[in-house]
């Protein structure tokens, strides 16, 4: 396992603070008051059982869903997102589980999808591949060539390309939704290493995962969600996996407390 510095040492200035976030879908109350804080260069693990509200919360932060009540503070300013574009303009990036890549386009085309460099009316392919190669090398993404089609890549490589694309937007906050699900062991290591490299650049990373061992590999701190609430917040160095499982399942909490 990787050694960790203390939470406060690695977590720089607070980038994002969520306070009392609520969200209902009809009669279903998905978020019942969530608090969350993320510092620059910090990797925060967001964990909880299925239906705990992790993905909903992250969609709120990424601007894909509008929250009902509560506040979002980014860089000391209170903001309200109406669309993903609003979140992007605050330098908040997200990589969803489906990665949003195009299988039949090559790596460079995927990295620059929607903002391809141009020379006159034409796509400047030389420049696009050069920048893509630079981007991938910096993040140590292992692909054979920027000309490789995404469909030819392994799950880990695809994930790495998706993260590289998100990083290329120069986010201050990067949300990763289950980036290591269904990956081979070696690929998990590649993705986790990439997460550390991204955080080392001062980016605050929020990692949603069911693979608890990943949290101990890469996170500084974890926030546990349970039935739409944030119920625990702790430095990973103070936890072991059994305690963490107990926090997620609330097995060491009475029903009244959990509610």
């Amino acid at each position: 396992m990787m050694s960790h510095e203390s939470t406060d040492a690695r977590a720089g200035d607070t980038l994002v603070t969520l306070e009392g976030i609520t969200k209902s879908f009809g009669a279903v109350q998905s978020l019942r008051g969530v608090d969350l804080r993320l510092g620059a260069g910090e990797v925060l693990g967001l964990v909880g059982d299925n239906g705990a509200g992790k993905s909903t919360l992250m969609k709120v932060l990424a601007g894909a869903i509008r929250h009902d009540a509560g506040s979002i503070t980014v860089g000391g300013r209170q903001v309200r997102f109406h669309s993903p574009a609003d979140a992007r303009s605050e330098h908040i990036g997200i990589v969803y589980q489906d990665l949003a890549l195009c299988d039949t386009l090559d790596v460079a085309s995927n990295l620059f999808l929607g903002r391809e460099p141009r020379r006159g009316p034409f796509v400047d392919r030389g420049e696009m591949h050069r920048q893509a190669a630079e981007m991938l090398s910096t993040l140590h993404v292992r692909v054979r060539s920027t000309h490789q089609e995404i469909g030819e890549l392994s799950g880990g490589q695809r994930q790495a390309v998706a993260i590289a694309r998100a990083v290329s937007f120069q986010p201050k906050v990067l949300i990763l939704d289950e980036p290591t699900a269904a990956l081979a062991v070696a690929e998990v290591r590649q993705v986790l290493r990439m997460i550390r490299e991204v955080a080392a650049r001062g980016v605050g990373v929020i990692l949603i995962t069911h693979r608890l061992q990943d949290l101990f590999e890469v996170c500084d701190r974890i926030t546990v969600m349970y039935e739409g609430r944030s119920v625990e917040d702790a430095a990973i160095a103070d936890l072991d996996i059994e305690t963490l499982v107990g926090m997620i399942t609330r097995s060491n909490t009475t029903t009244e407390e959990a509610a």
Binding site: P84, D98, A100, L101, C102, D103, T104, L113, G114, G151
Partner: peptide
């Protein structure tokens, strides 16, 4: 891209 994964292109 649309022929491969339209949603990915839309999200871009």
């Amino acid at each position: 891209g649309i022929g491969a994964q339209e949603e990915s292109v839309r999200r871009a």
